[in-house]
Design a protein around this nucleic acid. Structure first.
Lengths: 172, 172
DNA sequence: TTAAAAACATACGCTACCGTATTTTATTGG
DNA sequence: CCAATAAAATACGGTAGCGTATGTTTTTAA
């Protein structure tokens, strides 16, 4: 079966999730796809173009669509946080770690995370919390999410339910 | 002036903080230290031994000493969080990112973070919060810290004071 | 002072990548 | 069917890094 450009991108993203951005190498992907590396250059000018394409692909498939569906579905704050904390995080943490090495990725991540934060902030407002505090609380929830994503695989002592409970309870 | 083993370790950690673990290369460090790479092998058997030594060094100098001093100095929760959020984080984030690529580093980080968490939990208890909730709140604060460490450089919209305020206020 | 040891420099072979050039095989439209 | 195009394979030269071997300088200790 003939490969497509998208096959290379998916293989790159899979490798990113499994091994990190530094293992996203043309020859390694070619081995995984059981094809010669020569054909890679039919679909991409160079290694960088693959990386760019991977980020584009992820941005559309893993983020924009999710934010949209959350805005539509009218989910509760608790539900949104539970969904966020429970989704498969391997790809996501791969992207975040990648951003630590690539300023272009880092920049695009800021846009995405600000979207996510304002999404959460709206749900805090729905619970009757004022505008300013809603944003602060959304930022806190988001940072907790990033921290959890970073550490939950290595340290199993973090209880999602407890975190969500604390993040969604009012302060006195 | 003659170099020491510690000079190589410090250079390695500096490179880790500045460029990440993947740029901690023998020949790159030799260039930085303005010395030939041949002499590296006088102090270390191989590249891995340098990495091991770097982790040892960091564990002693950046963590054990800090935890000790905090336990002694009888600081408040707010003070501890402020100090944690304000310290230079470049080295720390370098280590955490490194852990994503190296299971040995990841494992040692679990011990360290559990120490830190129980340290924070004790301060929550001092404020009159019961044992179980203190630990949950300490975990929340810790995850927020990790998330903030990961993102604050790229996204300046996170306000430390607001985060500390939310983390230290009681819930109703 | 001088021989041994430590520190440092140089040169080498090896591997894993990159990107290019060239050739071979498949696919497709006229 | 058969050119023309696309896809894939092969072969090449180049770079960066590893670890070893070997040679040179510097330091140390008897």
């Amino acid at each position: 079966m003939q490969l497509t450009r998208e096959d290379w991108i998916k293989a790159g993203l899979q490798q990113l999730a499994d091994e990190g951005i530094h293992k996203v190498r043309i020859e390694a992907l070619a081995r995984l796809l059981k094809i010669s590396k020569g054909s890679f250059y039919h679909y991409f000018r160079d290694h960088q173009e693959l990386l760019d394409s991977m980020l584009d692909y992820w941005e559309v498939h893993a983020t924009k669509l999710i934010v949209q569906s959350m805005e539509q579905q009218d989910a509760s704050l608790e539900q949104l946080l539970q969904i966020s904390f429970n989704r498969d995080k391997k790809m996501e943490i791969g992207i975040y770690t990648w951003a630590k090495y690539d300023p272009v990725v880092a920049e695009r991540l800021v846009d995405i995370e600000e979207q996510r934060i304002s999404c959460v902030a709206k749900l805090y407002q729905k619970k009757g919390i004022n505008n300013a505090e809603s944003i602060d609380r959304a930022r806190l929830a988001y940072l907790t999410y990033v921290g959890w994503m970073t550490r939950f695989e290595e340290n199993p002592n973090f209880d999602i339910d407890k975190m969500v409970e604390l993040l969604t309870s009012f302060s006195g």
